[in-house]
Amino acid sequence: MSEVTIYTTTICPYCVAAKNLLKTKGVSYTEINVQTSMEQRNIMMQRSGRRSVPQIFIGEHHVGGFDDMALLERKGELNGLLNA
């Protein structure tokens, strides 16, 4: 199973939705809260090219945000990334 990393903030409903989707699939993940760490926020922006949260990575593959991950799930492509 690929390592999953999610950059989040405490009050983000899309972050919660992304974590819930992964939990329903039985996928563990590393959560990095960027709300209080400008250093981690800068790392997230450098890795993803985006400022919004969540930013989701499966291995080194940048999935994008929750909507992007949900689209992969609807298309039946998320499991392939997770199991790579």
Rank of each mutant, 00 (worst) to 15 (best):
V27P: 01
T36M: 06
S28Q: 09
Y29F: 13
N83E: 14
E73F: 03
M45N: 09
Q46P: 05
M44Q: 06
T9A: 14
L72W: 05
H62M: 01
I32H: 07
G49D: 03
E73H: 09
M69I: 05
K23H: 11
D68M: 03
T9S: 14
H61N: 04
V16D: 15
Y14Q: 15
Q35G: 15
G26F: 06
C12Y: 10
S52D: 10
R47H: 06
V16R: 15
M69E: 05
D68P: 01
L82K: 03
S28W: 03
G65V: 03
R51F: 02
N79M: 06
Q40L: 09
A18P: 01
V4S: 02
R41W: 08
L81S: 05
T5M: 10
S37A: 12
V4H: 02
R50I: 00
V53T: 13
T10I: 10
Y14C: 02
G65N: 05
F66W: 10
C15I: 08
T8I: 14
L22S: 03
K75H: 06
K23E: 14
L71D: 03
M45T: 07
G65Q: 03
D67K: 08
L82C: 02
G59K: 04
I32R: 09
R47K: 14
M44T: 07
L21F: 09
K19S: 14
N42W: 05
R50G: 02
L81C: 05
A17F: 04
G76N: 08
I43K: 13
D67V: 04
S28D: 13
A17H: 11
C12T: 10
V63T: 03
T5R: 12
I6D: 01
H61M: 00
Y14H: 15
I6E: 03
R51E: 07
L71K: 11
V27T: 09
E77V: 08
V16K: 15
I11R: 15
C12Q: 10
Q55S: 10
H62A: 04
T5E: 10
T8S: 15
E39F: 13
G59Q: 09
L81P: 04
S28G: 12
M1R: 08
C12G: 12
T24S: 12
H62K: 00
Y29S: 02
K25C: 08
G65F: 01
G59L: 05
Q35S: 14
V53L: 11
M69C: 07
M1Y: 04
L21Y: 06
D68V: 01
N79V: 05
E77P: 04
S52P: 02
L21I: 07
E39Y: 11
T30M: 14
K19G: 10
A84W: 00
A18S: 13
I6Q: 01
E3N: 12
S48L: 09
M38F: 09
E31P: 02
G26E: 11
V16W: 14
N33K: 12
H61L: 00
A70Y: 08
I32K: 13
G49Q: 01
T10R: 12
D67G: 01
L81R: 04
